[in-house]
Every structure is written in structure tokens, then in C-alpha cells.
Simulated scan of single mutants.
Amino acid sequence: MKACIFKTPGAPDVLTLADLPVPTLQQGTDILVKLKAAGVNPIDTKIRGRGAFVPNADFTVLGCDGAGVVEAVGDRVRQFSPGDEVFFCSGGLGGDRGNYAEYTVVSEADAVLKPSRLSFTEAAAAPLVLLTAWEALYDRARLAPRQRVLIHAGAGGVGHVAIQLAKLREAQVATTISSEDKARFVTHLGADHCIYYNRMDFVRAVMAWTDNKGVDVAFDTVGQSVLAQSFEAAKYGGDVVTLLAPADSTNWKAARDRNLRVSFELMLTPQLQNLPEARHHQAQILASCAKWLDAGKLHIHVDQTFPLSQAAAAHEWIHRGGGMGKVVITMD
């Protein structure tokens, strides 16, 4: 099979197309998937740049998100049969299990039937961002109806589904964006208030929007100074959830003074630490999202697609920034 791999961390050009054996089932609960598409996420570019989580691997096949058709199943698989269309977030953290490839092996516990309404390309773009946004807003912040939430980078991969999940929870949404095109995009998704972070101080804008009370929930998808500024935009006793590790220079005073609950969201932890219950919970999240996707209540926006042979170009696109929604690699 064809797969895109890297052996030594570095710039996008370390990604090369290679011929690898089709992976074989290792456990009775494994399924072999003929991949149709793989989502491209910022974590892929970070692993490529700094090295894989799995030590001592001869090479790494990237790609946490995948969608495709079940080709074969282990003797203890009960949920899937050959021919089923599935999507999942599994692999891509090091070694030969990843989704920048024509085939991959996945535990049946991590896979969910693909929403019939979605193309394989759209389905491959969905899992990681949906899991991240759901866990951040619903599990960590416990977002409730009529609450006000600030979502940073609302036009991005995580941001554009976070807006929709917040609206499905009947919350009021403010989001930071940088252009008129992005403002139109997030407004179409349901955002109630757009903040041009490159033109105005988002903390002041939030305070004006909330009558100086602050938001119930601030969701930081950017990191660095944005985290500390988000403390100042949250109301007393509110929640701030971040996807990034805090910088050493982070000023925590506002978080302490406001009695904030500060949470961290790394949706890869269940896979990295092999936590069966947490992985089961994530599969349940995907199944719930699949119903909303099929009902037209959730939408996945694919900004760009690249063939497998041009994975390096997909990473360069991510590095340039400025896109909306997701980037996807296709196998056909």
C-alpha cells in the first residue's frame, strides 16, 4: 500500500511517499479499514516537527482522523462487518498505525459508523475537532443553556464545530475572527457576536457584550497570551478551558482573583495513556455527533483537500494559517 511517512522530524518536506505492507489484524477486536480520506490537524504538524510520541519507531505514519470502508474484521468484532463505512480518531501518534495511508488497523472500540449524509472527505475531517470541542465545552466547562461563551478562532477547525455545539446547548456565542469572510462564515454557523481581534481588544469587546460581567465560559484554542487575557474576559466563578500548555510567563492573578475554574483539554490523552473507559466515552461522543450530522444539525467545513502524495503541501497550508474549517488528505 501507499503511505506517507517521515523518519526524522523536520519541515514538511520530510514527509515522503512509501510502499508499505498492508497492516494485519493484531487483536480479535481489530478492524482493517481501506481509507478514503484522512483529516489533517495541527497536532500532525507538531509531531512531524518535533518527533513522535511513540519512542524508537523506525518511521511514523501520521494522521489521527480517518474515514473509510471496513475490509476485514477480527474474530471478536461484534459491531462491524466488511463493507461498513466508518470514521474514527485513532493512530497517527508514532509508528506504522496512522491514516496518511491506503489502509489502517483500528480497534472496533474507537470506530463509529460514518454519517450517511457526509462524504468520506467530510467524515475524515470531523472526529478530532468534534471530540475536542465536545470535551472542552460539555465535559470540562459544563456549558448550560443561556450561558454566554467566548470561543477563540471560531473559523478554525475546532472553533467552527465548537460554535455549533454551543448553539446546540442553547448558549450565546461570541467568537474572535480576523476578516469579513470569517465573520460571515461564523455567523452562518450561529455565532451571535463577532470580535475582530486584530482591530480591537477582545476583553473590552466581551465586557461590552456582557454588561461588564464577563462570559460564563471562555474557550482558548490559541494559547500563549490569549489564555491570560481570557481570564480577564471570564465572569466571577466562570470557566476557562484551554487546548494549549500555559506559557511560563502566564499571569494567573486574574484567574485567582475571579475564582475561575481552569481546565485543560487534550483529547489524545485516552489514546496516549490507553484509558479504555475514556476511549469508550469518546466513541459515544462521536456516535452522538453522527446523529446530529445526519440530521443536518452539525456541519463540517472542508477548506482544502490534497492527494496523499501531497501531504507536505497540506502541512504547508496549515502552517500558513488563515484558512477556515479543515484540511483533508484523500486517497483516491
Rank of each mutant, 00 (worst) to 15 (best):
A228N: 08
A126Y: 03
W209C: 09
V173W: 06
D216I: 11
M200C: 14
L150R: 13
G154F: 05
A133M: 12
Q224N: 15
L227V: 01
Q164M: 08
L165I: 15
N212R: 13
V222E: 04
L130C: 01
V161L: 03
V149C: 12
N198R: 15
D139Q: 12
A174D: 07
G238Q: 10
K182I: 05
D239Y: 14
A208F: 02
S178M: 11
L168P: 04
Y138W: 00
A153F: 09
A124P: 04
G154W: 07
L137P: 04
K114S: 10
H160P: 01
L113H: 14
V215D: 14
F185E: 06
T175H: 02
Q229R: 14
T175Q: 09
D139R: 11
V161C: 12
D139P: 02
D220E: 05
L137W: 05
E180P: 00
R169W: 05
A136L: 03
C194G: 05
D239N: 15
V161D: 00
N198W: 13
S179F: 13
G190V: 10
D201Q: 10
D211L: 00
L137A: 07
A228M: 14
A153Y: 11
D192K: 11
A174W: 08
V173C: 08
V129S: 03
S179P: 06
A141Y: 05
V206P: 14
H160D: 05
Q147P: 08
G238K: 10
V215Y: 14
V215I: 14
P145Y: 02
G223S: 10
L189Y: 02
A155F: 08
R140F: 00
I177M: 07
A133H: 09
G214V: 10
F219D: 13
D139M: 02
R148C: 10
S178D: 10
T121I: 02
N198F: 14
C194M: 07
F219T: 06
G156L: 15
F120N: 11
R148L: 07
E122C: 08
D220H: 07
D216F: 13
K182F: 05
Y197G: 04
S179I: 10
F202V: 07
W209P: 09
A205V: 12
Y236H: 15
A191F: 10
Q224P: 00
A124H: 03
P127I: 00
P127K: 01
L128C: 11
F120V: 00
V158L: 03
G223Y: 13
L227E: 01
